Computed example of a mutant assay.
Amino acid sequence: MVIVMKPEATEEQLKEVISKIEELGYKPHVIYGTTRNVIGAVGDERGKFILQSLESLDGVEAVIPILKPYKLASKEVKKEKTVIKVGDVSIGGKEVVIIAGPCAVENEAQIINTAKTVKLMGAHILRGGAYKPRTSPYSFQGLGKEGLELLKKAGEIARMPVVTEVVNPEHVDLVCEYADILQIGTRNAQNFELLKRVGQVQKPVILKRGMSMTIKEWLMSAEYILSEGNRNVILCERGIRTFETATRNTLDLSAIAVLKEETHLPVIVDPSHATGYAKYVPSMAYAAVAAGADGLMIEVHPQPEKAFSDGPQSLNFSSFGRLVENLKLFTSVVEKI
Rank of each mutant, 00 (worst) to 15 (best):
I240G: 07
A130T: 05
E244V: 05
M5N: 01
E80W: 01
H124A: 08
G33M: 05
G295F: 09
I234P: 11
P304V: 03
E170Q: 12
A257N: 11
S90Y: 11
S254E: 08
I240L: 08
S90V: 11
K48M: 14
V281N: 00
T331S: 05
T263A: 03
L253K: 12
H273Q: 01
P312K: 02
Y131L: 06
G155D: 12
V166M: 07
A62G: 07
E228M: 15
A158N: 09
L226M: 12
C176M: 13
M121Q: 13
G199A: 06
E217S: 06
A154C: 03
A179T: 09
F320H: 00
T263D: 04
R134L: 05
L265S: 10
L251F: 03
V86H: 08
Y26V: 04
A158Y: 04
Q110N: 00
T82E: 12
Y280Q: 05
L323C: 06
L120S: 15
A109S: 12
V163L: 09
A291T: 00
M284C: 11
V17C: 10
A293P: 08
V167A: 14
I64D: 05
N249G: 09
R209D: 04
Q190P: 07
L235K: 10
F243A: 03
V60T: 10
E325Y: 09
I91E: 01
G128R: 04
E80M: 02
I125A: 02
S319M: 14
N232T: 07
M220I: 10
L57P: 14
L194E: 08
I112N: 05
Q110W: 03
R46E: 12
G144F: 03
G276L: 01
T34G: 02
E23S: 15
P282S: 00
R127C: 07
I31D: 11
F308D: 05
S314Q: 03
G210R: 02
A222V: 06
V269Y: 02
D58H: 10
V334H: 01
F243V: 07
D88Y: 13
A307Q: 07
L207W: 04
V205I: 06
I240H: 07
I84N: 01
V162G: 04
S332W: 00
V198H: 12
V175I: 11
E80V: 10
F243Q: 06
I66L: 12
A73T: 09
T164N: 08
D44L: 12
Y286H: 03
I84M: 04
T263L: 06
E335P: 02
R248Y: 01
K48Q: 15
K260Y: 05
G210E: 13
Y131I: 07
L265A: 12
A189N: 13
R187W: 06
G210Q: 02
K116E: 03
I99W: 01
P302H: 02
L207P: 14
R36V: 01
S19R: 15
R241G: 12
I225F: 00
F317V: 06
P304H: 00
M220R: 11
Q202F: 07
V17N: 14
N230G: 10
E165F: 09
L259H: 04
K336I: 12
I206F: 09
S212Q: 07
V258G: 00
P271L: 00
L315V: 02
L253G: 04
H124W: 04
E55D: 14
E262F: 10
S314L: 07
K71I: 15
I112M: 04
